[in-house]
């Protein structure tokens, strides 16, 4: 009996902060997106204006994050870079979510030949490890952030297709689906009204958790010279260009590096919280984290 009491007392102690976490991290994520949206108006200096007399100045009161080798203000470039990186990551996640889920819904709903064909196709894409295929795609398409987005979209859609497909298969066997069909609903109506809302939760959770990963991968491709190309202010390529100055002027690397780190962290925190709210399997064991 005593053991029982202790358990009860313990459960009372764990408060549910999920709502407050969502407000905080959601606000931070929106803040990052707003900074990216209004980047051109927020930069203290022109991010592309060169001033060789001011080259490689360490951070001081005039240039808060220092300057790069062309005397460009690092803070302005980091702010400007958020636009490229954050928006291409958001676009990428949107594209793969929509395409992947659409493929998954078609596969799960119709089954048969089209299902096995599309699933075999996704198997092939999943057979390439990590960024290997993205590197190949991006190298054929010769640079540009949009090409990096296309390259990453190629390798990332199958995850969503598989997720959506398995969700559709679960939903399909529910009694209300039979009821909907019996009452004369057409395919389009069934998909939009009964399937999409019911599979949206897990798909959205995956999508939000993917934003941070995609930011890192886009920056990674740019770092390799396969995404944004110099003069463009983009975090990955800024770090790549600063590599040789790591010893003498580390701020050239650290500023965009921490920008990536903090942005990814904000989106990951927001993603984790969205998962806690939306994922029904986690209900009741909150505080357990993973």
């Amino acid at each position: 009996m005593e053991e029982q009491k202790i358990t009860v007392r313990k459960q009372k102690k764990i408060r549910d902060y999920t709502k407050w976490k969502m407000i905080l991290f959601g606000a931070l994520a929106v803040g990052v997106i707003l900074v990216a949206a209004f980047a051109p108006y927020l930069t203290p200096y022109d991010p592309y204006a060169q001033d060789l007399t001011q080259a490689l100045k360490p951070p001081d009161r005039i240039h808060l994050l220092g300057t790069d080798r062309y005397g460009r203000d690092m803070l302005s470039r980091v702010i400007m870079g958020s636009q490229t990186t954050v928006f291409s990551a958001l676009l990428l996640v949107l594209v793969i979510t929509v395409i992947g889920s659409a493929v998954g819904i078609v596969c799960g709903y119709y089954g048969g030949k089209i299902d096995s064909f599309l699933m075999r196709l996704s198997d092939v894409f999943l057979a390439f490890p990590g960024m290997v295929f993205a590197i190949a795609v991006a190298s054929v398409m010769s640079g540009g952030v949009m090409n990096a987005v296309v390259a990453l979209a190629c390798i990332s859609w199958p995850k969503y297709a598989r997720l959506a497909r398995s969700q559709v298969l679960t939903v399909k066997s529910m009694p209300y689906m039979a009821a909907a069909r019996l009452s004369g609903s057409g395919t389009v109506k069934i998909v939009l009204k009964h399937i999409v809302p019911n599979i949206a939760g897990p798909v959205i959770v995956t999508a939000v958790l993917d934003i941070g990963t995609m930011i890192m991968e886009i920056a990674g491709l740019s770092f390799l010279g396969l995404g944004a190309t110099p003069p463009a202010a983009e975090w990955g390529s800024m770090m790549s260009n600063g590599r040789s100055m790591l010893q003498t002027s580390p701020w050239v690397i650290l500023a965009p590096g921490f920008a990536i780190f903090l942005t990814v962290m904000v989106f990951n925190l927001a993603g984790d919280t969205v998962r806690d709210i939306l994922d029904p399997r986690r209900q009741g064991r909150k505080g357990g984290g993973d």
Binding site: G212, L246, Q247, I253, G257, I260, F261, V264, M265
Partner: peptide, 26 residues
């Protein structure tokens, strides 16, 4: 531990390598 793993998850590996070079080598 979870906090540290969270930080590790938010660091791209090219940044980690540059940080490690900066501290341990330079």
């Amino acid at each position: 531990i979870r906090f540290l793993s969270f930080i590790g998850n938010s660091l791209p590996n090219f940044f980690v390598s540059l940080l490690l070079i900066y501290f341990f080598s330079l």
